[in-house]
Design a binder for these strands. Structure first.
Lengths: 110, 110
DNA sequence: CGAACAGTTAAGTAATCACTTGACTGTTAG
DNA sequence: CTAACAGTCAAGTGATTACTTAACTGTTCG
């Protein structure tokens, strides 16, 4: 569950057009057309990207009248951020231990 | 350049098998076989995943004798982390401004 | 030397992705 | 009422991905 959600979130962020949508949305909510206009593709194609962003939970949207308004969910952003951050910290902690070991007086090293 | 590097990094992290490799590597360097063994696939398939991790710079490796030793590059990990983190901060700053606006006395709101 | 080992290359295949154009639905505004 | 508009669905296509097995290269060790 959580794992496949990470799959989808990272996959969503792997595409520059979708990241452009995210960049736009962090400035505030936008309609489908507003998100699609700057992209080098047809509107239906842009909607597929939007769907990808929605399926991983990065973006939510609601339709009112004929306009669909989209906004990002910052919680999902930090989910991805946390995964990376935690792994980096493990690596750093490991380096610290290694450094301490190398600096220790020889008789402590065993 | 930087953009396509982000593409590749996020794409690399989108696959659970590759994330498992990263998980293993944050514990310390490992050989190709050690990385491949726990994965539900053949060795050549695992090597393709490894190549993906190398191409985005998340992993480096060097061969000595018949053994190739792989290690992660934490700088690349933080590259991905930063992109997400910066966008989340933009969004949060925006929410803060919005909150300040809503809390302001009416005559300041313009 | 010769067997076992670690890794690598190649060829082939099924599944998924990223679009396109064209037709259509429901909404709003003149 | 009807034209323009915002969004959506569908069918089709070419590119890319994720594997497989089989064959091969170079290394180590008894």
């Amino acid at each position: 569950m959580l794992n496949s959600s990470l799959d989808k979130t990272f996959a969503a962020l792997a595409d520059p057009n979708r990241r452009a949508m995210v960049e736009r949305l962090v400035q505030g909510p936008a309609t489908v057309s507003e998100l699609a206009r700057p992209l080098p593709m047809s509107l239906p194609a842009a909607m597929l990207h939007l769907r990808v962003l929605e399926e991983c939970g990065l973006v939510t949207s609601q339709k009112s009248g004929r306009v669909r308004t989209c906004r990002i969910d910052p919680a999902r952003l930090s989910l991805a951020e946390q995964w990376v951050s935690e792994r980096r910290k493990i690596w750093e902690a490991r380096l610290d231990r290694l450094g301490a070991f190398l600096n220790a007086p020889e008789e402590e090293r065993k």
